[in-house]
Computed example of a mutant assay.
Amino acid sequence: MSDNVVPLKRTDGEERPTLQPILSLTATAMNSVNQVILKRMQSEIPLIPALAGHLISGGGKRMRPMLTLAGAEVVGYQGTRHHKLAAAVEFIHTATLLHDDVVDGSETRRGKSAANIVYGNPATVLVGDFLFSRAFELMVEDGSLKVLKILSSASAIIAQGEVDQLTAQRKIETSEERYLHIIGAKTAALFAAASRIAAVVAEKGEAEEQALDDYGRNLGVAFQLVDDALDYDADAAEMGKDRGDDFREGKMTLPVILAYARGDEEERRFWQDAIAGFRTEDEDLAHAVALIRKHDCVSATRERARHFAQRACGALSIFPDSAARRAMVEAAQFAVSRGY
């Protein structure tokens, strides 16, 4: 990493990184993106905008479209093509969330009832399909086959990652390597694509494209690592989801993989039973959290997240210092230090 890249801050002092710089950087463009989202989620079938709006207006961070907008700033793009593409990115993400909640049987999302609980599984799946279709309409309207290839490829990779996660569910033998492969597909692929397309619309070279791709990919891995750590380390109100969802669903996330590897024979038997679905009560979750704390697995997961966030920051070293680059660096710092 070159000397002019702001390094990751330690987060044990008073000053903590925030999303405010990147929110401020992208605020005006995000208003345009939100207008596209609002317009394109409409349908003559009232249930569609009602269900889509239930999630889209639910207070998400809009990280993925924000990366498209911030990437455009860092490469000096002056046009507006990226507004529709950022909306397409958000539609892809929202569609995957709707489908995920059905697959997982989730009861809450962003602090309120999940769409599948309010509207039922069939409607939730179909509206997810509708949003995917809207995303592809926006891509085609942009007219760039390269953008279409990047985002359509990411969509396929996300789906493969979700299937891979499903097949790894309740399998205690899942390795850290496989886990990282899963989150690289189901989460980081869209972060990478959202970032990369900014360089494409700005007609920059392969080096700039790859730098933004690397930034988004590493940020996405860091973001998911922290998400998975928080499932064992945060209050449900802070997370906006039920604490212990991953535990009850038998998902082999990194805190569990580490706790299992570091545990004694009795602890490993507990994890085998829990991941198989035989230990899912509140007291079992409390025991799981205690074991994860005992072996410092949340801190270890966050430390791995720091590694990927550092790589994300390093990828930006090819760009000159600017408010945009500093905002993107701080977004990576926030991803590691956040509590929600």
Rank of each mutant, 00 (worst) to 15 (best):
G58E: 11
G58H: 05
R62Q: 04
R62P: 10
P65Y: 07
M66N: 03
M66T: 14
L67T: 15
L67Q: 08
T68Q: 03
L69T: 08
A72I: 00
V74D: 02
V74M: 09
V75Q: 03
Y77R: 04
G79C: 04
G79A: 07
R81A: 15
H82S: 09
L85A: 12
A86T: 08
A87P: 08
A87N: 09
A88W: 14
A88E: 13
H93E: 00
H93D: 01
T94V: 01
L98E: 13
H99Q: 06
D100H: 06
D100Y: 12
D101N: 12
D101M: 01
D101V: 08
T108A: 02
R110L: 06
R110D: 12
A115R: 04
A115Q: 04
N116F: 10
Y119C: 09
G120I: 14
P122F: 08
T124H: 09
T124E: 00
T124K: 14
T124A: 07
V125K: 01
V125Q: 08
L126E: 06
L126V: 04
V127H: 07
G128D: 04
G128V: 12
L131I: 05
L131E: 01
F132Y: 11
R134E: 07
F136Y: 15
F136E: 01
E137P: 15
L138N: 03
D142H: 10
D142M: 10
K146R: 14
K149H: 10
I150F: 02
S152F: 02
S153K: 11
S153D: 07
S155W: 03
A156N: 00
I157T: 13
G161D: 01
G161Q: 08
G161P: 05
V163F: 08
A168C: 09
Q169W: 02
I172M: 06
I172T: 08
E173R: 15
T174R: 04
E176V: 13
E176G: 12
Y179P: 01
I182V: 10
K186R: 14
K186M: 06
